[in-house]
Amino acid sequence: MNHSFNWGRFWLISIPFIWLLVFFLLPFIIVVKMSLSDMANAMPPYVPTLDLTQGWSSLMEYLKQLDFENYSFLMDDELYVLSYLSSLKIALISTFLTLLVGYPLAYGMAKMPEKWRPILLMMVILPFWTSFLIRVYSWIGILKGDGLLNSTLMALGLINEPLVIMNTTTAVYIGIVYSYLPFLVLPLYATLEKIDHSLLEAAADLGASPMKAFWQITFPMSLPGVVAGAFLVFIPAMGEFVIPDLLGGSETLMIGKTLWEEFFGNRDWPLASAVAVALLLLLVIPILFFQRMQEKQQEANS
């Protein structure tokens, strides 16, 4: 055996590691630092800025100027608290709605003859590959006041006045369910497909109705898929920007949109950073949970 230092292994680990440290971890440290700074009418638009050429005393001076002012502002100003609560509410409700739409779809796919399943699977994946922005955009023409939905319903005589859906929270729900449906269906279908059919036959032989067999066997066994899919919808929905911006109205508060407006509209970089840190703190538990699940799954596979 060769006991000298393994340079190949060293570079294999260091290159992606250093890349991630520089472009993933370091930016977060900068965001945290920025959230403790103050806004300024300058370029870059914040104070203090660190000038290391001035030596040790400037560093101390710099640290003294950092404070938690932005966070206390977040807590005091109703807009931010409401944005967080409303994002949470919208993400939870739309995750549930996605489950309502996605479960029957995944179930139906798993019940199809085996030779059909790859085609159905591809049909679920295909929209996922097409542009997210375009898929959200496609709903504007359908939902708006003189859009296709209203003109169809009015032509059929089902309604007399156009429904107001566009620029409301309802449109945001539709947008999220539509955009994230494949994320839920794929893991759910994977678990449903693996369920051993003989269990259901046994239940039927023992006199269970199909309904009872579903709730006592299929549903509990599909729960890992439900949980994985629900996380994949809930986490990105919390920080969503495009959907509330294009489909929602002024009444739709979501934290991703608030951050965007704080940054691009008000050019308040420190406050936008504080919003980002607070959003991350809210998501840290679900994200860690999701990571554990990924790692466990990988261990189970190996």
Binding site: I13, P16, F17, L20, L21, V22, F23, F24, L25, L26, P27, F28, I30, V31, M34, P44, F231, L232, I235, P236, M238, G239, E240, F241, G256, L259, W260, F263, W269, A272, S273, A276, L279, L280, L283, P286, I287, F290, Q291, Q294, E295
Partner: peptide
């Protein structure tokens, strides 16, 4: 830390990734 940095970006809200990278480039 390494595996954490591989899995986190998959679920990170894009607004946070975007903002943090911008601040890095400015810094």
């Amino acid at each position: 830390l390494f595996s954490g940095m591989i899995y986190s970006p998959l679920v990170m809200p894009e607004v946070i990734t975007g903002l943090s990278l911008l601040l890095l480039f400015v810094a």
